[in-house]
């Protein structure tokens, strides 16, 4: 989300370097070992790295364990309703394009109840960092099946095992018109997570990041016991997300051209091993709010009145 639209940049007084504490709010209430903690820290690091004023940033979320994140981030935040973070974020971007926006959702939040908004947000391509914390379960409501719960797994609404194949959100994103950024990472790979969020931050347009997230309480067995035995392949490109040598014990690398949509689509449909890194990036897709601001005229007050009068002329009969 690099270039803040130059339409009306807030004048911020202090511009000294910020420390991580400047982005910390109340103490997170997630369970011990929950992957959400790591995402919060990674975000705080990205904010510090970009030295953003806390008041200039807006984080928006839905409802779920993951959606509590804005409470713990010392920026402006909006903790909304289940599935609807993206429309709220779109409203913020449309009206205040100078404010960087982070959207945080759960897998149920984004892929299920918010599915329609998800598809359209990708097409709008608002300039925002969009993170889905995918623990493959509905955690806040205590373990119901989610669209990404693996086939056959037991949850409280599928005590005899799920009925359907899980959805592959990556291939859905890659099928959408105007997709401009897609990456996948995991909470048990903190360095990769950090780099991915930074990359997302630097992208101009909607940076969609699926974060495979450990939920030791309701899905301890997911992702091969929280990543220990989970087959992944790291997508490698000098412009992509760096693969730290330490990561190589978790999986192989694979050369990947994230500028090539066909290649990205091919990678997106392959789930085993799970592709990690930057699948696709096209920085040239225009952002919706910038298209809209570009076509809008902002008359001064006398012109505003003059125009209103001439509109009324059209309806004037005597």
């Amino acid at each position: 989300m690099s270039s803040l639209a130059e339409l009306c940049v807030i004048e911020s007084g202090a511009s000294e370097a910020h420390s991580l504490d400047d982005y910390e709010s109340e103490k997170p209430r997630w369970c011990k070992g929950c992957g959400d903690h790591g995402v919060l820290v990674a975000l705080q690091r990205a904010l510090r790295k970009n030295n953003l004023e806390p008041e200039e940033v807006v984080s928006v979320s839905g409802i779920g364990c993951s959606s509590r994140l804005p409470h713990y981030l010392n920026t402006y935040g909006f903790h909304g309703i289940h599935g609807r973070a993206l429309p709220i974020a779109t409203g913020v971007r449309l009206s205040r394009p100078e404010l960087p926006v982070i959207v945080v959702m759960g897998d149920g939040d984004c892929f299920s109840i918010g599915g329609n908004h998800w598809l359209h947000a990708i097409r709008y391509n608002i300039n925002a960092v969009v993170l889905v914390l995918d623990n493959e379960v509905y955690a806040l409501t205590k373990m119901q099946v989610s669209p990404t719960t693996p086939d056959g797994w037991k949850t409280k609404t599928t005590p005899r095992g799920t009925y359907l194949q899980p959805m592959n959100p990556l291939s859905v994103v890659m099928g959408m018109t105007n997709v401009s950024f897609l990456a996948q990472t995991a909470t048990w790979l903190p360095a990769h997570l950090d780099e991915t969020i930074e990359k997302a931050w630097d992208h101009h347009g909607l940076s969609f990041v699926r974060i495979l997230q450990r939920c030791p309480v309701f899905m301890p067995q997911a992702f091969g016991e929280g990543g220990l035995n989970f087959p992944v392949v790291f997508l490698e490109n000098e412009d992509g997300i760096p693969v730290h040598p330490l990561l190589l014990k978790r999986g192989q690398t694979q050369a990947h051209n994230h500028r090539d949509i066909n290649e990205a689509q091919r990678v997106a449909v392959s789930v085993d091993p799970a592709p990690m890194g930057l699948l696709y990036q096209n920085p040239d897709v225009p952002a919706y709010e910038e298209i809209r601001w570009g076509r809008q005229d902002r008359p001064d007050h006398p012109t505003f009145i003059e125009r209103l009068d001439s509109v009324l002329d059209r309806y004037t009969v005597s």
Partner: peptide, 21 residues
């Protein structure tokens, strides 16, 4: 803004209003 459905329509309006418009 013609949104994808009525829920999104009010959501966008609410987001804009939250942001001060």
């Amino acid at each position: 803004h013609q949104a994808e459905d009525e829920i999104a329509a009010i959501g966008v309006a609410l987001g804009a209003s939250y942001a001060g418009k």
